[in-house]
């Protein structure tokens, strides 16, 4: 489905947005191709919403430019918006209208008929709650209604700003299923998140953004195909300190009783020999798939994105190849 030779669906060129006090987006260039599920990963305040706002034309850039479906003139962008569906920040609806009436408003803007409203309501599982007022919806229902609204008009590109924000694990799972369904139907999806594992489980590609800059951009498969060394010894702290001295170690991190390190050469035997010479004896040494978390730490120097991001982890996130949707 992913075809790097395709024409880009989204491409930005040194995009910037400066506010009086802060630079929210500080020269961002990236490219999203057709069929990708592109994760825009970064901590709160990194500039994700501002970047999406720029793409959606509701924030005007200070400098730089971008193309949607290969066009960048005002006219191109206006017609590009007919081929996409998007949410920004929170689900934005009329609180006093029912879910269905809210979609009628959106359908009016997008020139869609009533049958389609029922179709998308069923897709997100809101068919039976469609009569209820939006303000009475739970956060999960609101997020799902927002997803339904983006799907109206069967757009080729769907942009979602933190679609699972504030949801419990069950709600997140539901949203993830819907997004996977869309990806399977060949939609291009651009989603922002501050949660590593959400991106790891949903996306084919990732760009990591921090302080308004992109610090890393690659496919999720690439991330995980480069191995890291997983080590264990009786004293993990001493082990971590020893590995940190190893010349070929790019970075080292202690995780509980385990130590993880990325090696420039990937040569485990050499590492083992070097440690043994220093009197460190390993109980376990293996080449492990790198997780997005490793990449994130490496790229940003940040141990954790947000407490919530790791609190919600259902056990250690171990990435296995082939698990990526």
């Amino acid at each position: 489905m992913t075809d790097p030779g395709d024409s880009p669906v989204i491409q930005t060129f040194d995009l910037r947005k400066r506010y009086r006090r802060t630079t929210a987006v500080d020269g961002i260039s990236f490219r999203v191709d057709a069929g990708q599920v592109f994760g825009f990963l970064g901590p709160n305040g990194a500039g994700k919403t501002t970047t999406i706002g720029l793409l959606l034309g509701i924030i005007s850039p200070t400098a730089g430019r971008f193309e949607l479906f290969g066009g960048s003139s005002a006219r191109d962008l206006h017609s590009a918006r007919r081929r996409m569906g998007a949410t920004l920040e929170t689900p934005n609806f009329y609180p006093y209208l029912s879910g269905r009436d809210n979609l009628r408003i959106v359908a009016g803007v997008k020139h869609r008929d009533r049958a389609e409203i029922e179709r998308v309501l069923d897709l997100v599982g809101l068919g039976r709650r469609a009569k209820q007022k939006f303000k009475a919806y739970s956060l999960g229902m609101k997020q799902r209604l927002a997803l339904a609204a983006t799907m109206l008009g069967d757009p080729e590109l769907i942009i979602l700003d933190e679609p699972a924000n504030g949801l419990d694990p069950e709600g997140m799972r539901e949203i993830r299923e819907i997004i996977r369904g869309l990806a399977e139907r060949g939609k291009t999806i651009f989603l922002s998140s501050h949660m590593l594992w959400e991106v790891e489980r949903t996306c084919t590609h990732v760009a990591i953004i921090q302080n308004g800059r992109i610090v890393r951009q690659q496919s999720v498969a690439d991330v995980t195909s480069h191995g890291v060394a997983g080590l264990r010894a009786a004293d993990p702290a001493a082990l971590a300190a020893a590995v940190a001295e190893y010349p070929a170690a790019r970075w080292v991190r202690q995780r509980g009783d385990r130590v993880v390190a990325e090696l420039e050469d990937g040569d485990l035997a050499a590492l083992n020999a070097w440690l043994a010479r220093r009197g460190v004896h390993l109980s376990h040494l293996a080449l492990e798939a790198r997780s997005l978390e490793d990449v994130f730490m490496e790229a940003t120097g940040v141990g954790e994105l947000a407490p919530a991001a790791t609190d919600a982890l259902p056990g250690p996130v171990r990435h296995r190849l082939g698990e990526v949707p």
Binding site: L56, G57, I58, H78, R81, R82, G85, A86, T87, L88, E89, T90, N92, F93, Y94, P95, I105, V106, V109, K110, A149
Partner: peptide, 14 residues
Amino acid sequence: SWRTARQNVIDGLS
């Protein structure tokens, strides 16, 4: 306040 002014434009209204 409801940001529907914003969403209407995102949905395709100029």
